[in-house]
Design a protein around this nucleic acid. Structure first.
Lengths: 223, 223
DNA sequence: TTATTTGAACTGACTGGTCAGTTTGGTTAG
DNA sequence: CTAACCAAACTGACCAGTCAGTTCAAATAA
């Protein structure tokens, strides 16, 4: 904990600071993803970022705060990826407004984006699963918020499927979203760690089995 | 690391040692599940087990080895649970030999067992997901072996489903097993951490959506 | 039965080292 | 000119692993 030196101004951050923070994010992501938050020292992070230890404290105030902001940073990227996947543009306006594409295809695109993210930022995925479910965690609040944001995006996509297709109403929506969300992380990490030979599309297909089991019989959107 | 004092005899372990080891397993599981392997000290574990620090080293040689044996211990319990779930007794003997029950129901029972295990040993589940995908982990080999054992049990159950029902052959078996496996952990942990109001059966239903999406149309075993 | 021995199991103070966070006095870039 | 950064020393807490000594139950001797 640290009351903190002056600290970088919150508004209109200059270019140098932004670059420094980015370098620190990159280095932390890599190291913490490999060895865990507790297993990495601030000295190591600073060295890997090519920056002095004091700069870390100048910019973030504490190791804990650095990690909290790192989590926020990663989630912002993932959220953006999910939302820019094809078919995500049209949200629930009225009821079953006619939208462009097939929501199941949109879902598939979204899962593909999620898996691509896991490939691109495997360290973030490891950090997430490592720290997410710790009960008295320093980042409990942070995780609750970020988790909610991500599940909301997935929830919208599921909602669109549920409006276009007849779905199994005995499957609770929340648990389904959780299962999909978790499967993306786990399948992505497992592929990277234990089965690099498995393709992206195979993984997407496996996770999409979820959605195919959720919708009731017969293809054809607009149930 | 520790060449090790005499060390407890491997065969015919006396009652005292067995009890001590069990106490250490219980205490470690609890503490490590909450704060992570690196976040817990050997002193704490010893104190929580009501045992001196030296005893930990007498019995396990090192913190690392204690955790490795803890992982093995937990997996043995989980494996036993999965295998004793109803409908797991008949394995693949020839091809589609007539077995007792519906493999889909057996699958459902198995997932239920897995979720019960996650409820009963949430700390083990947290330890697993925290350390499983670390790349140069001290327990890399341990995890590879244990993961294989668990996936094999799941694989047999999936195999039985595939023999009784027509299934979607475009979904790779390995990825599917991974997804189910991971979903059990994540849904179980999420329930415990964020949504205690969700019931066991709701969670089972959500994960079973996987299997329903895997089998092609129309109910009725013995395709 | 009682005394003595043995050694596995256990104890806890101690050591050497590590690490988060601080401070200070200077340097650089915008 | 000043916010941002650097380098390096320092503090105080914490921690994995060690080891000389203790306990006690069972084996053996008297």
């Amino acid at each position: 904990m640290n009351a903190g030196p002056p600290g970088p101004v919150r508004t209109l951050r200059p270019a140098r600071t932004t670059a420094t923070r980015q370098k620190l994010f990159d280095a932390s992501m890599e190291l913490i993803g490999e060895r865990g938050a507790a297993g990495v020292t601030v000295d190591e992070i600073a060295a890997a970022a090519g920056v002095s230890k004091g700069t870390v404290y100048y910019n973030f105030g504490s190791k804990s705060e650095l990690i909290a902001q790192l989590l926020r940073h990663g989630v912002d990227i993932l959220k953006a990826r999910l939302q820019e996947a094809p078919g995500q543009e049209a949200a629930a306006q009225g009821a079953a407004t006619a939208v462009s594409g097939d929501p199941l295809l949109a879902m598939e695109a979204m899962i593909g984006q999620a898996l691509d993210f896991m490939s691109e930022y495997p360290s973030f995925a490891r950090l997430w699963v490592s720290e997410n479910w710790r009960t008295p965690s320093e980042w409990q609040g942070t995780f609750a918020v970020l988790r909610g944001e991500l599940l909301a995006v997935i929830g919208e996509a599921v909602e669109r499927v549920a409006q276009a297709y007849p779905v199994d109403s005995t499957v609770p929506r929340g648990s389904l979203e959780t299962a999909i969300f978790g499967a993306c992380f786990v399948v992505g990490l497992d592929r990277q760690t234990y089965h690099p030979e498995r393709t992206r599309d195979q993984s997407v297909a496996a996770i999409m089995a979820f959605m195919r089991g959720y919708v009731l019989q017969q293809p054809g959107p607009r149930g």
